[in-house]
């Protein structure tokens, strides 16, 4: 196919890269030309230039960084706190099969309503603001991770317990050599899932109950018809999630695949 095109040899240009960029170029071009070819009002579709200009303004006056920092801070706190409590408690619950079976339906129920559903309750209890948002994030992460942990431990085959015990393992040995490694995959998967839910919970909670942060910034702009801020917010949310995912979970996945030969 490419042989028909006579060009000086340039090994760096990857045809896949070019085709991949094409849709982006098309979208950007359509976006830029929209005011010329249609009569969509500017408040509905701000031009790329306007969005870029807003980005520069907000970056320079520091408001952008402060919103992003507020959100990330909240996310980190909620994520660490939630998982730090959930995983040990989950392990403790799951060690006793009877307790695990008793609590699994309850945990499953709370996991299904974790996060967003608690926002209005949080507003009643803590009012609008960062406290409510943090509560919702911790809630989401906690119930998500604890459920993963308990399921993880419960899915360890009984054979392994018996094997360890037949070798004379004490209860503590069983925990460290059977339970924790056995549940580890599910716990790691839970770390990723809880982050996915936690991120959505962060943005959503900030929209409804926040007073700062990216989510708040994005929804608030709707009231003032500042669509350029809405678009900016969306792009930021995308970029941030990509960064988070790359930073945190690609390494985790590599470890999981390398050690256990699994694909999540």
């Amino acid at each position: 196919m490419n042989n028909a095109i006579q060009m000086p040899p340039k090994p760096r240009i990857n045809p896949a890269l070019v085709t991949g960029l094409l849709p982006f170029i098309v979208v950007l071009a359509a976006w830029a030309m929209a005011p010329l070819i249609s009569d969509i009002p500017a408040y509905k579709l701000p031009s790329p230039a306007k969005v870029w200009g807003t980005f520069q303004d907000m970056l320079l006056n520091g408001s952008l960084l402060s919103e992003v920092w507020a959100s990330l801070q909240r996310l980190a706190t909620g994520y660490i706190l939630g998982n730090l409590i959930a995983i040990p408690v989950g392990l403790a619950i799951a060690l006793n099969r009877a307790v695990a079976e008793t609590l699994t339906p309850v945990l499953s129920f709370f996991q299904s309503i974790a996060g967003i559903a608690w926002v209005p309750l949080a507003i009643i209890w803590f009012g609008v603001g960062g406290g409510s948002v943090l509560f919702v994030i911790v809630n989401t992460i906690f119930f998500s991770s604890i459920y993963s942990t308990v399921i993880g431990v419960q899915s360890i085959p009984l054979v392994l317990y018996r094997a360890a015990q037949s070798h004379g393992a004490s209860r503590w040995d069983v925990i460290t050599t059977v339970v924790v490694p056995g549940a580890l995959v599910q716990i790691l998967v839970g770390l990723r899932t809880s982050m996915a839910y936690g991120w959505r919970a962060l943005v959503a909670a900030e929209m409804i109950a926040g007073t700062n942060g990216i989510g708040y910034m994005t929804l608030e702009a709707v009231q003032w018809y500042q669509t350029e801020i809405v678009v900016l917010g969306m792009i930021l949310i995308g970029v941030l999630w990509l960064t988070l995912d790359r930073l945190l979970f690609v390494p985790i996945e590599r470890v999981t695949v390398r050690r256990w030969g699994l694909v999540s």
């Binding site: 896949a16 943005v203 929804l219 709707v222 792009i235 995308g238």
Partner: peptide, 21 residues
């Protein structure tokens, strides 16, 4: 090749972020 990258890009923009727009 054509749609892969742009789909990956939009995947990063969670649905929650689309609702205001």
């Amino acid at each position: 090749r054509l749609l892969g990258p742009i789909i990956n890009f939009f995947y990063a923009i969670v649905e929650v972020a689309w609702i205001p727009l």
